[in-house]
């Protein structure tokens, strides 16, 4: 009996793993991309203009075949369309632009027309030639941030993507988020009317459920409620 009491006390004091929160554990490569970006309708990278959109188009240069199936000869492109600006701050010599939570990211497969950046987007081919074909992955970036070095005028775009549509959505493992990380540079090859030459990647981040400590007593309470 004494032993039972001791055991009961011990059990009550034991730290028990309880599902509590989701964290990213081991990210996996999803895709590598490059292209160009622009602001619209006010051009020239005016991120702070009222009701101005940030947009980016380009090609997918590599994918993880575990999650995206490709067909030789087909063209794979992407399109990013921001939500409206939420906040704009200057820290040191950097402008930090956060967007409202419905920025769109789409990945497309096209067996027909070749993409064409043209100049001064939006134009006859941008974003049109990047969003034709089949949407294979589409999602929302609820936390998109553009950071601009106000000295060099280079920058970065980052956020997490929640995929919700596309013909290959089913290829993605459940319970993942995707981290979108891109740099932008004002390189020589930027077509007229675009802002940055962008280069980056998207990585899948499997979410595992974390734990919190509790007691057997608290667990029993859960079943009594």
């Amino acid at each position: 009996m004494k032993l039972l009491t001791v055991c009961t006390v011990m059990l009550a004091a034991l730290a028990v793993a309880m599902p509590a929160f989701a964290t990213c554990t081991t990210p996996e490569f999803l895709l590598d991309l490059n292209g160009f970006d622009y602001t619209f309708p006010v051009p020239g990278g005016d991120f702070a203009a009222p009701n101005n959109y940030y947009e980016a188009v380009g090609e997918i240069v590599a994918v993880n075949p575990l999650y995206i199936t490709t067909t030789g000869g087909n063209e794979y492109t992407f399109y990013v369309l921001s939500d409206f600006l939420a906040t704009a701050d200057t820290v040191f010599n950097f402008g930090i632009f956060s967007y409202q939570p419905n920025s769109f990211v789409g990945i497309y497969e096209d067996a027909g027309t070749a993409f064409d950046y043209g100049t001064s987007p939006q134009n006859a081919t941008t974003p049109g030639s990047f969003v034709d074909g089949t949407l294979i992955l589409g999602g929302i970036m609820p936390d998109m941030v553009v950071t601009v070095d106000l000295n060099t005028l280079n920058g970065s775009i980052q956020g997490s993507v929640v995929w919700s549509s596309g013909s290959q959505l089913g290829n993605l493992p459940a319970n993942t988020s995707t981290q979108f990380s891109v740099i932008g540079t004002d390189a020589f090859g930027v077509p007229a009317g675009y802002v940055w030459d962008i280069d980056g990647e998207a990585n899948l981040c499997p979410l595992t459920t974390g734990t919190e400590e509790t007691t057997w007593g608290d667990i029993k309470k859960l079943f009594n409620e």
Binding site: F94, D149, S156, G159, S181, I183
Partner: peptide, 16 residues
């Protein structure tokens, strides 16, 4: 280098 850490999501930035 710069790293933007908003306190949520994944911190990240650029190398130049």
């Amino acid at each position: 280098t710069n790293i933007v850490d908003l306190g949520a999501g994944c911190p990240g930035g650029t190398f130049f």
